[in-house]
Structure formats: C-alpha cells, structure tokens
C-alpha cells in the first residue's frame, strides 16, 4: 500500500471518530427527544460512512482480487447504513410525533395541539387515559 493511501484512510477514520463524538455528545446533552434524534440520525450516518470508507481503503491494500471483493462488501455496509439509518430515525421520529411527545420550547407553553399535526385529540381520549390511570392506581394499592 502506498503511504499516501494509508494516510488518507487514517484521516478518514479519525474524522469519522470526530463526527461520532459529536453524535454521542448530542445524544447525551440535547434537551428533548427531537433534537436528540437529530444528532443520532446525522452524526451516526456520516461517521459510519467515513470509518467504513477508511477501512475499505485499508483492506484494498495492494489491489488483490479477493481484497477488492471485501472492500466492496464493506462499502455495501456503508450504503446499507446510509439508506437505513435515516429511514429508521425518520420512522421513530414519526412514531414519537404521533405519540404526543412535546418538544421543548423557551416559554414552556407549547401544547401538543399547537403543532397542527394529526395529534391524538380524540384517539387518546380522556376516557382511555382515565381508565389507564385507575388501572395503575389499583395495582399500586395492592
């Protein structure tokens, strides 16, 4: 392997680690669910792609037949994660939105109906909430 390629792959791996550090701190420190999702979706995907590219360059080495196949497989993983990770983040975000998770705001006055989404005004009716509450109360009393 040429020295230049080696250095290039190391730079890719290290930059991937830096982006993953950002994602991890974001998941730890962001105030509410939606912003945490933001960190998870973007930083995770980008860091995975960068590290995988670096590892693929490492593996290719001196361009043998089988190692090229392995490098293609590694890049396939990168493509797979690039497709699936944002999709799953989007779906989980949608699930949380339908679930009625309230985003944090400065004046703490945002109600769930202010967002104009298809929220659970009637589906999560007061009756079912009350029913669940009494059920848990009954359990606690026991």
């Amino acid at each position: 392997m040429s020295e230049l390629l080696n250095i290039f792959s190391i730079i890719l791996i290290l930059s991937g680690l830096v982006f993953f550090l950002g994602a991890s701190i974001g998941i730890l420190r962001f105030p509410d669910f939606y912003t945490r999702m933001h960190a998870a979706g973007k930083g995770d995907t980008l860091s995975t792609i960068l590290i995988m590219s670096g590892m693929a360059i490492q593996v290719i080495g001196d361009f043998e037949g089988s190692s090229v196949l392995v490098a293609i497989k590694i890049l396939a993983i990168a493509v797979l994660i690039m497709l699936t990770s944002p999709t799953s983040t989007h779906l989980l975000m949608k699930a949380g939105y339908d679930d009625g998770i309230i985003p944090v705001s400065k004046d703490k006055k945002t109600k769930i109906n202010d967002l104009g989404g298809p929220f659970l005004k009637d589906s999560l009716s007061e009756k079912s909430v009350a029913k669940k509450k009494t059920a848990t109360k009954k359990r606690v009393k026991k």
Binding site: L83, T87, K94
Partner: peptide, 16 residues
C-alpha cells in the same frame, strides 16, 4: 404499511 419512505427503503434493500 409504514409510509412511503420506509417502503422505498425496503424495496431498495430487500433484494440485497
């Protein structure tokens, strides 16, 4: 199903 985006992604990665 799970919406357009999930369907698109699944149709891409299912054969794989």
């Amino acid at each position: 199903g799970a919406g357009l985006l999930a369907r698109m992604t699944c149709s891409l990665i299912l054969p794989f």
